[in-house]
Simulated scan of single mutants.
Amino acid sequence: MIRSDKRFLKNIDRVRLFDLKNYLYRKGWKQSANNGQKWQIFKFDVDSTNSLDLILPSNESFIDFRERIQQSIEALSQIEDKSVSELLAELMVENADSVKLRLKVPKSVNSLPIEDASRHIKAIKNLFLYSGCSEIKNFPHFEQPLPAAQEFLSDFEFCHTFRGSFGFEVSSTIIKEKEDRDLFEIPSNRRIVERIARGLSALDQAVRSDDPDILISSYETALNARMCDALTQIGLGGQINFAVDIDWANILEPSEDVLFFHGLTIGEAQVSILNYASEKLKVVEPTMQEISGRVVNLHCVANPSEGGARRSVAIKVDHSEHGLIEVRLALGPDAYLQAIKAHTEGRELVASGQLQRKGNTWSLDAITSVREGLESNK
């Protein structure tokens, strides 16, 4: 009986009435009658003379709603000659994309260090967050997540971990009941998952061809640098292999280029490509620019007026293209004193030179001028 199946009871909460009705419509059932506030009848014509009726509650407000849904699923499993678990698995992806990440740990391991678990979860969050960033702007790298991308995360939720090994499941509903949107527009949460799938496909091709440029050149539609970082961090930098599997919602077919993608295992070869691609995507070739920002760090271990002293300054720059970045400058004695004065007086420092980024580090080289700017209000 269904009531004795704890796994079923655990997952039944993920089946909404809206999803069950969509499943019935897709399978050829038609709504034939309803009693307004209490119930609704769906009919399936077996042949010209025989039909089947299925009674569903009219809404989810009734105390016995879950019990009624269980009974309906049990009846459907008999009608379709499927096990309850098979039918439930279909219903859970009727209207929701499911991204499953399974850690490949030895069978003897029965727990995870809590610090490692938080690192896995943070990396998974970043994978979706920075995928959302690329849906807003096609940048190869993001210093910080875009504020608008944070809003996309509300469309995703962690589900119960699944049986076997250690795993995480992230689910996102495709169509919300009574949602007012353009039905011809792909929802943002589906585009985010498709970008992840597209990136994993490109990663697989890059590994098979031993050509990381396949992954690097596809950043506009696939993985940006932060997404590469997130994938490596899910496996704790290569310490743990893990599998990523995607079940697409039945209600909306995915884009053609990811239609047949279902999963990939991330191991040593994949992490190596991801690390390389991330570094390359973070590189910004030197260009002559004038930057300005508040001084956030001054460092000189010797007398700054001495010619051989190493004088470094960091300024926080709100760059029109790269966002909020911290840029390092190596300065001569006079320019360093100007930086100290600007910092003391709360003014910005303005400098011209070759701005570039290597990895996560921004620097201004070949500096041609340094001066005090406007009073900083930050």
Rank of each mutant, 00 (worst) to 15 (best):
W362M: 03
G267E: 07
H160D: 15
G308T: 05
L20H: 11
V296W: 13
E60V: 00
P145E: 01
K358D: 13
E90A: 04
T287H: 10
S108E: 11
A123H: 04
I240N: 01
E177W: 07
A149I: 01
V105I: 11
V105S: 05
A277D: 06
T344S: 14
R357Q: 14
L274D: 06
N50V: 00
R371S: 13
N34A: 07
T368P: 08
A277S: 15
V283K: 15
D334P: 01
G36E: 14
I136L: 15
Q78D: 11
S134M: 01
S131W: 04
E321T: 12
L274T: 04
D229Y: 03
E321S: 13
W362R: 07
L236Y: 04
T49L: 12
L331A: 03
L374W: 03
R26N: 13
G167Q: 11
F152I: 02
T361K: 15
Y130C: 05
K378W: 13
F65R: 02
F166D: 03
F128C: 03
P140S: 10
E86L: 06
V370W: 08
H141A: 10
A89S: 15
E253Q: 12
K27A: 08
V327L: 09
Q205A: 14
E194C: 04
I367H: 07
N50W: 02
F152A: 02
L17T: 04
F18R: 09
I251N: 12
R163P: 01
T221K: 13
S172N: 15
R195Q: 06
A123K: 03
P254E: 07
K282M: 14
S165Y: 07
V170H: 12
L129G: 08
G373F: 12
A249Q: 04
A96G: 00
T287V: 13
R198L: 02
A222H: 02
P187H: 07
T221W: 00
Q239C: 01
D53K: 10
V317F: 11
L337Q: 15
Y130Q: 01
Q40E: 15
L200V: 01
A197Q: 12
Q270N: 06
L264K: 11
N377W: 10
V295P: 10
N189G: 05
W248I: 00
R3P: 06
N11D: 14
E345F: 06
R328Y: 02
A96T: 02
I121Q: 08
I315H: 04
S171K: 12
L52N: 08
I196R: 00
S305V: 05
E321R: 13
I291V: 15
A302C: 01
A206K: 02
S108D: 07
S58L: 04
Q289M: 13
P286C: 08
G235Q: 02
R347P: 00
A269V: 00
I192F: 04
S217L: 08
S292G: 12
S118P: 00
D19W: 08
S32N: 14
G293Q: 10
Y219R: 12
K316M: 09
F8I: 06
M92H: 06
S51P: 00
F8M: 07
D97N: 15
R102V: 09
